[in-house]
Nucleic acid binder design. Structure first.
Lengths: 246, 246
DNA sequence: GCGCGCACTTGATTTCAATCAAAGTCCTCC
DNA sequence: GGAGGACTTTGATTGAAATCAAGTGCGCGC
């Protein structure tokens, strides 16, 4: 039960910590959460919720990757969020899903029934504050993505996505080897395109270009290694003050 | 003191209601808020905060329009949010501004000193819940904007922006005349471009095109009237189920 | 009134990414 | 092992918006 300062709580059975829950009042909450929680598994490609569906639970991603996306009338789609392990899904106080939620890999979720969870929120003030913090983080991420979608070139978009996944992966898996980072892309070229506001052909071309120029190395289609993270960051167009991950 | 169900609270002096505050416990809060509030006026074009600045207040926009924007190293900028009257600005629990905040018109803000406001949040649980709701709304708006930035054409972007401003303006000012809506654009062509991820020339061209085709009418550069809102909505690419404003 | 500056418009050209089209690679299931 | 299909790459061409470059119109101060 370490890392309590971070506001995480380790669940009895889940391998990940639930960020939605406040550390200051953890004991009572854990007891309550244990009572209302259950697990669900979604297979790769399965739709977890369509926009407008009634969702009777909120959940934390335990493993796997899910995406949030929106679609225009004529079928153009834009991914608006990515759910990685430890991310929270669902809106206390909102019954309807606001986006299409899809499992891109097999996804295991630790679900909490909506009503009791909302009750818990009402009686445990810190939970709302914790959710507020998390939502503010999501909002920051969404706005950073707006900058990417509105102003970055295709190459910068790809580099940014790779940098984000690399950083996230490094902090979760500690897979850093020497100065290089390795990870498996959890997304198809099409999903990357939907996330970046590009076509899959453009994604493929830019990935090839980054490979050709030695910014990244590819083993197979999906396994990527980044020999020099700073070099990759240079391609993102961002301020590079963020520094190395981990 | 009507509209209490909406979670608004009417402030003694402000012409607008503060959405940040919960209606259920309004009396105590109002007393406290009165004690820690003060007004600030920013002139058109003035920067309210730069990214990274320490902000010792949170605030509600009373009048005028402010923008939130982010910038890449080489100066490309993307607006990531628009603050209209009654919108809330600032992050409880976060000292630093995450974006550049700029007044595009003269802006009057009703400010609350940070420390007492955060204290109020701690002692009044409903405030965190109210802020959570508002932040979720902002997140939805940001994600809708991601769809616009990533997948819409220039024409659709312009139509979407005009529809949003028209709808918002109609609900605030009840300026609907017959079947048509009229409003003044609060943004320059350049600001519109920054919001939509376009250049100002493209904005100008597309506005001209919509005018030429009778979708909108222009009086001067900034005064717009929309003879048929549904016609405008057709140009946005969205589902048109949202219907007429007001 | 006149000139100045700013916001905006319009035109010509270029460019980056989309689109259209055809292979190539890898994996699974017979 | 080989056929089929999903995913990916690459090439040729098109097209939408950016860029470069003049202009216009309007308000304001002198």
């Amino acid at each position: 039960m370490q890392d309590m300062e971070l506001g995480h709580v380790e669940c009895a059975d889940c391998p990940i910590r639930h960020r939605a829950v406040c550390s200051r009042c953890e004991t009572d909450e854990l007891v309550l959460l244990e009572e209302i929680k259950y697990y669900r598994t979604f297979e790769a490609g399965q739709t977890i919720a369509w926009t407008g569906d009634k969702l009777d639970f909120v959940a934390t991603v335990v493993s796997g990757i899910a995406t949030l996306s929106q679609t225009l009338e004529d079928g153009r789609t834009q991914m608006v969020g990515l759910l990685l392990p430890s991310d929270f899904m669902g809106r206390p106080g909102r019954e309807m899903a606001t986006y299409d939620v899809t499992a891109t890999t097999e996804v295991v979720m630790c679900c909490f029934r909506r009503r009791p969870f909302e009750e818990l929120m009402r009686t445990t003030p810190h939970i709302a504050q914790r959710l507020l913090e998390m939502t503010l983080d999501e909002l920051d991420a969404a706005r950073e993505w707006m900058l990417l979608l509105g102003r970055k070139t295709a190459r910068e978009k790809i580099a940014s996505l790779l940098a984000i996944i690399a950083r996230r992966d490094a902090s979760l898996n500690l897979s850093k080897v020497g100065g290089s980072l390795e990870f498996d892309l959890p997304l198809t070229r099409e999903a990357m395109a939907d996330y970046l506001g590009l076509t899959l052909e453009t994604v493929s071309r830019q990935v090839s270009a980054l490979k050709r120029e030695g910014v990244i190395e590819l083993a197979g289609k999906r396994h990527i290694s980044v020999p020099d993270f700073d070099r990759l960051m240079l391609e993102t167009g961002d301020d590079c003050d963020g520094g190395m991950p981990v």
